[in-house]
Write a protein that binds this DNA or RNA. Sequence first.
DNA 1: AACGCGGGGGT
DNA 2: ACCCCAGCGTT
Length: 222
Amino acid sequence: MKKQTKIKQVHNNILDWFNQYARDFPWRHTKDPYKIMIAEFMLHRTRAEQVVPVYNEFTKKYPDVFALVCANSDDIRKVTEHLGLHWRSEHFIKSAKYIVEKHNGELPEDYKDLRKIPGIGEYIAGAILTVCFNKPTPVVDSNIARFINRFYGLNLKGEIRRKKEIVQKAKEIFNHDNPGQLLFAMVDFTALVCKPQKPNCDSCPLKFLCSLNKEQKIVEES
DNA sequence: AACGCGGGGGT
DNA sequence: ACCCCAGCGTT
């Protein structure tokens, strides 16, 4: 068997796992950056299953940024209100106006330009770059941060998401020829296996590489 | 670095 | 009764 780097094994094991256990969501069938942006606004601190019907209604009603920019703000609010975080409905309106005015309705492919769009932060910018434009970019949500902290035994505490060590590891992980698929795989893996509480270490495809597994150190040393 | 936002589902 | 969720903007 060919020797692989650790990061290659992480990629292979995660993607093999993903082939079998991937969740299916409507925004995973498009690379339209507008729709990815809409999905990510809705997924902000909100469960994916809860977003599905809202996303479907929203994208049917406002299929592109030009439809959205013409929309009535009360109508937008009605579609999105039962997602909670009510102030988010302003993001839909402000981002659409900004994209039409500054970018002629096209989402930019540049990180700094994406970050200037109202409501788009580090995570959403990274998600758009990886999923829509296939540009390797470190994408760190709270789940991926937790995974990195565990897997590499960093033992960081507090607000770890933006810490240098976490971002550096994320950079290595997302340096991949299909970073968008890797993001979806990481999201599902950290939601279903490497969960916040009671992770399913027994069925984990990375258990023999993980710092939580004490046997791993023996394997490495032998 | 830390906090508020928020309804809804899981445990 | 908690805890957590594909984060962002502000302090």
